[in-house]
Simulated scan of single mutants.
Amino acid sequence: MTNERSAHAPFEVSEGLREIGQAIRVARLRRRQPASDLASRVGVSLPTLRKLEKGDPSVSLGVFARAVWTLGLFPAVRRAVSPENDHLAASIETSRLPSRVRRPRELNLDDL
Rank of each mutant, 00 (worst) to 15 (best):
A35I: 00
E19P: 03
V59D: 04
L49A: 01
T48P: 01
H87L: 13
V59N: 05
K51G: 05
V101Q: 08
E19N: 10
G62L: 13
A35F: 00
E53C: 08
S14H: 13
R31P: 01
A9R: 09
P83H: 15
V81D: 09
V26I: 08
S91M: 12
V59R: 03
E12M: 12
F74Q: 08
E4K: 12
R79N: 07
M1R: 15
R32H: 03
V101R: 10
D56P: 06
D56I: 13
R50C: 11
V26L: 08
L61D: 06
L29T: 12
R66A: 13
G43E: 05
V68A: 02
R79Q: 04
D56T: 13
L109Y: 04
G62I: 10
N3M: 10
E19Q: 09
H87V: 13
P57E: 05
E15M: 06
H8I: 14
V81S: 09
A67W: 03
E84G: 08
R96V: 15
S14A: 15
R96T: 15
A27D: 04
H8A: 11
N3K: 10
A9F: 07
R96S: 15
A80G: 04
L107K: 14
V63H: 03
T70M: 01
R103Y: 11
A35Y: 00
P83F: 15
R5I: 12
E84N: 11
G62W: 12
S14E: 12
E53M: 07
N85A: 04
S91K: 13
P47C: 02
E4T: 12
V59S: 07
E15F: 10
L107I: 15
R105P: 02
R30V: 01
L73N: 00
L52N: 11
R78V: 14
Q22P: 03
G43C: 06
V13E: 12
L109K: 07
E19Y: 06
S40M: 04
D56E: 15
A7E: 12
S58C: 09
L109I: 08
E15C: 06
M1I: 14
R18C: 06
R41S: 00
R103T: 10
V81Y: 08
R31G: 06
S36I: 02
A27Y: 09
E106R: 14
T48I: 08
P10R: 01
D110W: 06
S14W: 07
T2G: 12
S6M: 10
P75R: 02
S99N: 11
I24F: 00
P83G: 15
A67V: 05
V63P: 05
T94V: 13
H87W: 11
L71V: 03
I92E: 10
P10F: 00
R32V: 00
E15I: 08
A89T: 11
V101A: 12
I24Q: 05
P98C: 15
R25D: 03
E53N: 09
